[in-house]
Design a protein around this nucleic acid. Structure first.
Length: 431
RNA sequence: GUGCCUGUGGUUCAAUGGUAGAACUCCGCUCUGUGGCAGCGGCGACACGGGUUCGAUUCCCGUCAGGCACCCCA
């Protein structure tokens, strides 16, 4: 690289997706489309820019996302816009704005695209990341939809050959029962202040549910006798949770109830879940990898946005993390080998004729590659090989003179000579 | 935002207070009549800025970036 006088570097936390990785992304996108079709989710695309207020009210003013993770822009007119940090609020906005409640309910939509959070990057955590989401909005508040979004997320992961997946499910109750549980939790921790870390002491006032998330040794100890939210669920939430588990059982989903799944966004209620992949560490023990996705029910989001109360549930998956896992586990994503045709020319006359011939192929809708800048036959065959061509067409001086061309099967090396004017038809037959 | 570790060609790694070597990749030639080989040749790097020094890629500081942990999550 020549001497540079500025940083030729992607912005912190962003990354390029290079040509050699595109097939993995393309595969994931393809599977997203297929899973969406099977489970009848329609695609929705919302803008990358939204008003700041949408997330303040939707995700919640006191959440990390809103407090410190948003890229906020100010327009010339003084409006506050943000690069969207998540998709659910935006989908809810679109649902309200376009009166989508007048389509048949529930509305099932999916989206896929870039999202932005201002955080310190590390493996699997980016400032610009790609997420795919499935949302079920409106209709009955039925646990079957909770399980359906889990199912869609799970099937998507399975479709790219991810193994040892587990869904950790919990219920965090509703407006009625969650405050009761918080009270119980706090009274349990009241005389344990000395036994927990300073972060947890902070959590006691700020976000008590997060106490359950801490991984400090002493806090793990302290957690052991902590009350379980399941015991405090109101009868409606309890019934809903039971329904979720029954459906999950019926579908034989690889799930486990995990009372420590809490999730940090305000809009969640009742069902919450996260999907992990279990990996085997070097010492042979099973470890839980990073969360590949998560989601839950958000029955109160619409109210927070000042809209008519609407039941809804969704799941999101991190596409970058999926790609990272595929790469680090060396999961083999088969590339569909198109029958590529490669044109080889020898000599100036053949080059001229070759250009003409290529146009004929293009007109016939056949993709054809070449490396006509090279001269030697060997070099061109090498290029054909690298390009993964299955057939090579060899046009030399002799052939130009005889108005014929050689078709070479790159795998077997079998060659045959056909008339130049018949070659397009002949190739069409073969691919 | 905090703490710790790291930064040498495209990639993986060396060496060194006197400005750097290799392997793979890439390009070219042998090769205008038959490909994955071989032989030969070539392009290409000390992240950036400052300090110490006669001299810094090497030591020190800062910046940037990456990784790990916290926080949180996708």
């Amino acid at each position: 690289m020549p001497k540079k006088n500025f940083d030729l570097q992607a912005v912190k936390g962003t990354h390029d997706i290079l040509p050699q990785d595109q097939f993995i992304w393309e595969k994931i996108r393809k599977e997203i489309r297929e899973v969406a079709e099977i489970y009848s989710f329609s695609r929705i695309d919302t803008p990358i820019l939204e008003n700041l207020d949408l997330f303040k009210r939707g995700v919640g003013e006191a959440t990390d996302i809103v407090e410190k993770q948003m890229f906020v822009l100010t327009t010339k007119g003084g409006d506050k816009l943000v690069l969207r940090p998540e998709g659910t609020s935006a989908v809810a906005r679109a649902y309200a704005q376009h009166g989508l409640s007048h389509l048949s309910q529930p509305l099932k939509v999916y989206y896929e695209g870039p999202f932005f959070r201002y955080e310190n990057p590390q493996a699997g955590r980016y400032r610009q990341f790609h997420q795919v989401g499935f949302e079920v909005i409106g209709g009955e508040n039925d646990p079957i939809y909770d399980v359906q979004v889990m199912l869609a997320a799970l099937r998507l992961l399975e479709s790219v050959k991810l193994k040892n997946l587990t869904i950790h499910i919990n219920s965090i109750g509703c407006k009625v029962c969650r405050p009761i549980y918080k009270k119980h939790l706090l009274s349990y921790y009241k005389n344990k202040k000395k036994d927990i870390c300073k972060d947890c002491n902070r959590r006691m006032t700020q976000n008590p549910l997060r106490l359950l998330d801490c991984k400090e040794d002493k806090c793990e100890q302290a957690k052991k006798g902590a009350p379980n939210i399941i015991d405090d669920l109101c009868s409606v939430c309890r019934k809903h949770f039971k329904g979720v588990l029954e459906y999950a059982e019926e579908l034989k989903l690889p799930y486990q109830v995990d009372p420590f799944i809490v999730r940090g966004l305000d809009y969640y209620s009742r069902t919450v879940f996260e999907i992990f992949m279990e990996e085997t560490s070097q010492s042979g023990e099973k470890i839980t990898g990073p969360a590949l996705g998560g989601g839950g029910r958000y029955d109160f989001l619409f109210e927070s946005l000042g809209l008519k109360s609407t039941s809804a549930v969704g799941a999101g998956l991190g596409m970058d993390r999926i790609v990272d896992v595929i790469k680090s586990n060396k999961i083999n994503i088969p590339v569909k080998q198109k029958n590529k045709v490669f044109l080889i020319v020898i000599g100036i006359e053949a080059k001229k004729k070759g250009l003409e011939l290529m146009e004929e192929f293009i007109e016939a809708g056949i993709n054809i590659s070449e490396s006509m800048g090279k001269n030697s036959l060997g070099a061109q065959l090498g290029s054909a090989d690298k390009a993964g061509a299955s057939l090579a067409l060899i046009l030399g001086q002799k052939e130009v003179f005889k108005e014929s061309i050689i078709i070479r099967d790159m795998k077997t090396g079998v060659q045959e000579t056909v008339l130049l004017k018949k070659v397009v038809a002949e190739i069409k037959k073969r691919i």
